[in-house]
Amino acid sequence: MQIRIATSEDLDDLVRIYAAARRYMAEHGNPHQWGDGRPSPEEIANSVEEGACRVGVDEDDRAHFSFTIYSEEDPTYQQIYDGAWLNDEPYVTIHRVASDGTMRGVFSSVLARAKDEAGKLGIHNLRIDTHNDNLTMQHVVAKAGFSYCGIIHLKDGDPRLAYQLVL
């Protein structure tokens, strides 16, 4: 397995991966997080265009998981409720982790890539958020050593559980 920056040639695979992730979430008690078809093909294409989208590929370069990485401040992380961030230092944000379910150890690979990219930027913090019903993501985030920090709200007002890892 290798992780690379997604290109426009990956768009069909990315749409397939996010559809598989939505099915998985719905089957495991989380039908609302991306139940409205998000991320939309347009949102996926925008993250590819921005250079933020990453894909995990097999030896044939077929994509099986995806995530986005951002190194600029996330506006939805400016206010946190019922808790606090561990520090106010720069951070890399991991968003939209999704898998087609065919590879194991996806989040470990995502985390290793995020740590590597953060290190190259001289950044020593990772942040991530997830839906309250996304028990799978909560489990892997805690297992990876992230600390629960509180609740943030997306642009549309939806609450998310917020986590931080100091590297």
Rank of each mutant, 00 (worst) to 15 (best):
V15W: 01
E50D: 11
T76V: 14
K115G: 06
Y81I: 10
S66W: 01
T93S: 15
N132F: 07
M1L: 09
I94H: 03
G105L: 06
T7H: 07
V106I: 15
Q2T: 07
E42M: 08
L165T: 04
F146D: 10
A21N: 08
D156K: 08
G51A: 09
P75M: 10
I5C: 01
L121T: 03
L126D: 00
G157R: 07
L121S: 08
L11F: 04
W85T: 03
G119K: 11
R38Q: 12
T130M: 10
H139Q: 07
K155S: 07
N87S: 15
V110D: 08
V166I: 15
D133A: 11
E42W: 05
I123V: 15
Y77I: 04
C53I: 00
V15R: 03
H131K: 01
C149E: 13
Q33Y: 06
L14N: 01
V55G: 07
A118W: 15
S8Y: 08
R16P: 09
R127A: 09
G105R: 02
N132E: 05
G105Q: 02
D74Y: 02
D13K: 09
Y163S: 04
V140E: 05
S99C: 06
M25H: 00
R127Q: 10
E42Q: 14
T93C: 13
G37R: 05
Y18H: 09
Y70T: 08
K143M: 01
L11P: 02
G122F: 12
D10A: 14
I94M: 04
A144F: 06
V57M: 00
I152Y: 07
I17V: 06
G157Y: 10
Q138K: 15
Y70W: 07
A162C: 12
C149F: 13
G83Y: 14
A26D: 02
D13W: 10
G37P: 05
N134F: 04
I128Y: 11
G119Q: 12
A144E: 09
G29F: 13
R54Y: 09
H28A: 05
I69Q: 03
E49S: 10
V140C: 05
T68S: 13
G145C: 11
Q79W: 04
R113D: 14
Y77D: 11
C149M: 13
T68I: 12
A118Q: 15
D129G: 06
G105D: 02
Y24V: 00
D60N: 15
D129N: 10
A20F: 03
L154K: 13
T76M: 12
A162P: 13
R113N: 12
A144L: 09
I5S: 03
